[in-house]
Simulated scan of single mutants.
Amino acid sequence: MARTVQNYYDEGMARPRKFDEDRVIRAVCDEFWDKGYAATSLEDLLRVSGLGKGSLYGAFGDKRSLFLRVLRHYDDANLLSLRKRLESASRGADLVREFVLGPASDPTGAAARRGCLLANSNAELATSDPEVAAEARRSYDAITAILTEALERARREGDLAPDADPAETARAALVAQLGLLTLGRTGMDIGTLTAAAQSALARLLRAPLAPMA
C-alpha cells in the first residue's frame, strides 16, 4: 500500500489532502536531476508534484529541505542497489567493472549527458552548502566501503593483484567513475567514454580470466 501524508490543506481549501509520498519524491527528484537545484523553481515543484504550495511545504518543508530529503533518498536507493548487485555478482570484480562502466552503459548517450544527481549536486552546491557536502561524503564513503568488499573478494578470486590494497583501489575506482560522469555530461561520444572506462579498469584490475573450455 502506498504511503500517504494526510491532513495538509491547500491554500484556502478546508479539506484534507492525501497523496503518494513516494511518487512525489520520485517526480521532484527527476526535476532536480534534470534542471539542477538553482534552476528548479517552486512552480516546477508544484507542477511535477501535483500539490499546492501549502501541502508541499507542510509535508516537506521549504525547497532546500525538500532537496536534501530527495538527495538522501536517491543516495540510499543507489547504495541499496549497489549492495544487492554485490551480493548477486558472480565475481567481485564484476561489480567494480559494472560500476566504472556505468556512465557509458546507455548506448544513446542520454544517461551520460544526464549524469548522476549526487555528482551533479555536489559540483553545483558542495562549496556553498555544508549539508550537501556532508551528504556527498557520506554516500561516497559508503560506496567506497562496498567497492572495498568487492575488491577484497576480487583479490581472493585472483582478479586483483595479491599486493594491491582493496581500499585504495576502491577509491581509485570511485575517482575514475566520477571523472567519467563529468566527461559524459559534456556529450562525449559513448565509444570514447567506454574506451576511457576500460583503460581505467585495466589499470585497476587484472585482465578477466579466460573462460574454461
Rank of each mutant, 00 (worst) to 15 (best):
A210K: 09
T4E: 14
L125H: 02
D163C: 07
A145F: 05
T127I: 10
K18S: 13
L45H: 00
A145C: 04
A170Y: 01
D159V: 04
D10G: 14
A195H: 06
D106E: 07
A77C: 08
M13D: 12
R91G: 06
R3E: 14
D129F: 07
Y8I: 10
E43M: 09
I143N: 00
R85S: 11
A38K: 13
A110K: 15
A93Q: 06
S105H: 10
A119F: 15
V48K: 06
A112Q: 04
T108Q: 02
A2L: 10
V28F: 00
L68D: 01
E157A: 09
A89L: 06
A172C: 05
D44G: 04
I146W: 03
S90H: 13
D163M: 10
R26D: 10
E157Y: 04
E124H: 03
Y9V: 10
R138P: 00
A213D: 10
A133D: 15
A123Y: 11
E21S: 12
A39S: 10
A150C: 07
K18G: 09
T148H: 04
E168A: 14
L174I: 05
R64K: 12
M1K: 10
A111P: 00
A39K: 11
R171K: 15
A196R: 08
A39R: 11
F19S: 05
T186R: 04
C29K: 10
